[in-house]
C-alpha cells in the first residue's frame, strides 16, 4: 500500500518531462513544489506549480485532464516509473499528495509508446485507441423501440464479467506499463465486453480479427505475459481477458479459414 503522509504542509521536488512539441526534443526540468497539502490530488499539485510558473512568466506544464474523478481516462502521467502513480486501481487524478513524503523527488513523464506520440509535455495523442475501437465496429442491434429488459436472458456471471471489461476507460496505462508497449489489455477488454454478451455474438469473430489486426498495424508491441498492464490499470481489469482474447482469436482464425462461402452471387431482397 501507499505510505500515508499525515504531515502538515510539505514540499517535494518535481522532475517533469518538458517537450515543446511532437518533433522537438524533450528533457527533464526540476521544479520545487512547496507548501503542499497532503490532501491535494496530484493534478491539483500540478495546478499550483503551474500557477507559480504563470506568475513568473514561464510556460506552464501541459497535462491532460478532464473529469478528475477517475472515470474519463484523460489524465495520464507516469509518476516515478509507474503509470498513474503509486496507488493501486486509481488514475493520476485520484492520486493524492499524501502518497509522498516531504523532500521526495518525483519523476513525472508522459505515457511512452511509439503509438502514443507526445503532443506537448505530459500530453500524448492516444488516437490509436479510438482507431482500434472503430475497427471493432458496431453490434447488430434491433432499431426501433427498446426491447423488454428481460427479453434477452443473460446469466448474471456473464453480465458482471462483461461489466468488468466494460470498465476500461481507455487511458493507456496498460500500454505505458508494458515493456513491449502492448495494447493487449485494452483490446482484450473491448473484445471481451461485447464477446461475453449475446448482443455481441453476430460480429464476434470479425471483431476480434479486425481489432487485433488494427492493433498490430498501429505499431503496438506483443504480450509477454508479465501482467504489468493489469497491475497498472486504474480499473484493475484482469489479464484473464487477454487469455480469453487469445482463445477467441485462435478460434476465429480457424472458423474464418474453414467457413464455406455461401452459394450464388449474394444479392437479397
Amino acid at each position: 500500500m501507499v505510505a500515508v503522509n499525515t504531515q502538515q504542509p510539505f514540499s517535494v521536488t518535481l522532475r517533469v518531462w518538458r517537450q515543446a512539441g511532437p518533433a522537438q526534443p524533450g528533457k527533464f526540468v526540476e521544479y520545487a513544489a512547496k507548501d503542499l497539502s497532503p490532501n491535494m490530488s496530484f493534478l491539483e499539485m500540478l495546478d499550483v506549480v503551474n500557477d507559480e510558473l504563470t506568475v513568473k512568466g514561464e510556460e506552464p506544464i501541459a497535462f491532460a485532464h478532464d473529469c478528475r474523478e477517475g472515470i474519463c481516462g484523460t489524465c495520464s502521467c507516469t509518476i516515478n516509473g509507474k503509470p498513474h502513480g503509486p496507488g493501486k486501481g486509481i488514475a493520476t487524478c485520484q492520486t493524492y499528495m499524501r502518497s509522498f513524503k516531504d523532500g521526495d523527488t518525483i519523476f513525472v513523464e508522459p505515457f511512452r509508446a511509439r503509438a502514443f506520440p507526445v503532443v506537448k509535455d505530459l500530453i500524448t495523442d492516444r488516437t490509436a485507441f479510438d482507431t482500434i475501437t472503430q475497427a471493432g465496429g458496431f453490434i447488430t442491434a434491433r432499431a426501433g423501440s427498446a426491447p423488454d429488459a428481460n427479453a434477452l436472458p443473460i446469466p448474471k456471471g456473464d453480465a458482471d464479467l462483461a461489466m468488468d471489461a466494460a470498465q476500461c476507460i481507455g487511458c493507456g496505462a496498460c500500454v505505458a506499463a508494458c515493456k513491449n508497449a502492448s495494447a493487449m489489455l485494452f483490446v482484450s477488454a473491448k473484445v471481451g465486453h461485447l464477446g461475453l454478451l449475446p448482443q455481441g455474438q453476430a460480429e464476434r469473430d470479425r471483431r476480434v480479427l479486425a481489432m487485433v489486426n488494427t492493433m498490430d498495424t498501429l505499431g503496438f508491441g506483443s504480450c509477454t505475459n508479465q501482467y504489468e498492464c493489469s497491475a497498472a490499470c486504474p480499473k484493475l481489469i484482469s489479464h484473464d481477458f487477454i487469455a480469453r482474447m487469445n482463445r477467441d482469436y485462435l478460434k476465429a482464425t480457424f472458423r474464418d479459414a474453414f467457413k464455406p462461402a455461401p452459394a450464388g452471387g449474394g444479392g437479397g431482397a
Partner: peptide, 29 residues
Amino acid sequence: LTLESKRARGGEPYGVKTWIQATLSSRYM
C-alpha cells in the same frame, strides 16, 4: 516479436521505470 516490441516502445526511454509485478524469470527470457 522482440524487434517489434522494441520498436513499439519508441525512441525515448522512461527516465524512471519500475517493475510492478513481473516475475524475475519473465524479465530475463
